[in-house]
Nucleic acid binder design. Structure first.
Lengths: 222, 222
DNA sequence: TGCAAATCGCACCGATCAGTTCGATTTGCA
DNA sequence: TGCAAATCGAACTGATCGGTGCGATTTGCA
């Protein structure tokens, strides 16, 4: 698998010289270039030679840092997955009303999920889900599914404090997320909508999602 | 296995001589085999030789009937797309209450969209959406989007007769469809849920979708 | 500066695959 | 039955691509 550099560098070593395939800067350089190549052309169409050219490294070096093209792709996906959903959980710590919190949460998730990079990544992952089934499942678990779990926990708190009345809370969380991206994501994924949805589009979708959610699960006091 | 010779053609049709690449039975035979190959292995992994073997025809003949592998794939998708959404519109002609109609509609669409064949087709199409952007858009327009248009028209009628109160009707249609498949489709697509959702799973999802929809857009009389 | 390690550059391998060619074979109408 | 058209089958083409091997070059510490 990936060379998860378990080698403990001494301070002296870390400064400049690294073992073969152990320079984090070079590793990052490869991943940045490969990410661009994959995003622009897809997994199959992006050749290893293209990747090397874009990243500005030699093929020999690439294969010192990564075992295979698939290995490289996995490393990129895992990194991006974590990066994208970073600020997600914080929104749910706010003390605002559920309406406001849900609106912010829905907006954020719609922005992420419908962004060109994420849509492209999703396309690639879905397309090779047969060849690399574990990767698809992990991407989903660490991305959209994790957001759903976070939202579930938030909703549980709001139910406990009587702000919301929900019987099946995980289902409600999934519903809200799908509602937030309802008219946007699927067309994006299939290429029917080629341009990024505007802030206004997202606002319409998310505010309607919040309204619907509150109509169904609100207790009338908000 | 390969010979699908119980074809539904009359003796007259079948006995006739056809021009090269003009025998509908042979064309169908190719498409049946190719469909199996594509579904089992995906677009790239399914080789033309595999397709020929499964279909029980020679490569030469295949290229008499279809210009390319992509051409063949398109023909299959267009055919399947129409077949799957066949009984969809009829449900919306029922005189039942909106709750019942929506429940039937949601159940049907969830069954279709989450079925193994459709999920696999969606994966393939999404995966090659970059190479064949038109196909993805057409597949979406003729499939899920058409269902959404049908539902929009139904909802318009119900709004006109005062059964429902909706401001943005196309948005509401999209919302209902997404709600119906909310906890099911995405995990299926990413390979997180490898087995077909049970009737019970679908019922839970759809009935909750209906309840939510009525809570948001009902006028209280139903 | 010298030396060893890391990286580079590039040819090369082996495999795959879409699509073509063409002679052999089957099919079905007259 | 004869003949022409449709189909078969299998070799072949041309190109792509992931991955390897190895000598040349650069890098950075001693």
């Amino acid at each position: 698998m990936t060379e998860q550099d378990n080698s403990p560098f001494s301070d002296a070593e870390r400064a400049n010289r690294h073992g073969a395939g152990c320079d984090p800067a070079k590793r990052n350089q490869i991943m940045v270039g490969a990410k661009r190549a994959f995003m622009e052309r897809g997994f199959d169409a992006a050749g290893v030679n293209d990747i090397c050219q874009i990243a500005g490294i030699s093929k020999s070096t690439l294969y010192v840092y990564f075992d295979s093209k698939e290995d490289l792709f996995e490393a990129i996906i895992e990194q991006e997955r974590d990066r994208l959903f970073l600020g997600m959980a914080e929104i749910l710590q706010s003390g605002d009303t559920p309406e406001k919190v849900l609106f912010q949460f829905g907006t954020k998730i719609a922005e992420i999920i419908c962004s060109p990079e994420v849509v492209q990544a999703q396309r690639i992952i879905i397309g090779i889900a047969d060849r690399m089934p574990e990767l698809g499942a992990r991407f989903f678990s660490g991305g959209a599914m994790r957001a759903q779990v976070d939202l579930t926990n938030y909703l549980k708190r709001k139910v406990a404090t009587g702000h919301l009345a929900i019987s099946d809370i995980p289902l409600a969380a999934a519903q809200f997320i799908e509602l937030s991206i309802a008219p946007l994501w699927k067309p994006r994924l299939f290429g029917k909508m080629s341009t990024l949805p505007s802030d206004h589009d997202i606002e319409i979708s998310v505010s309607s999602a919040v309204a619907m959610f509150v109509a169904a699960y609100g207790n009338g006091t908000t």
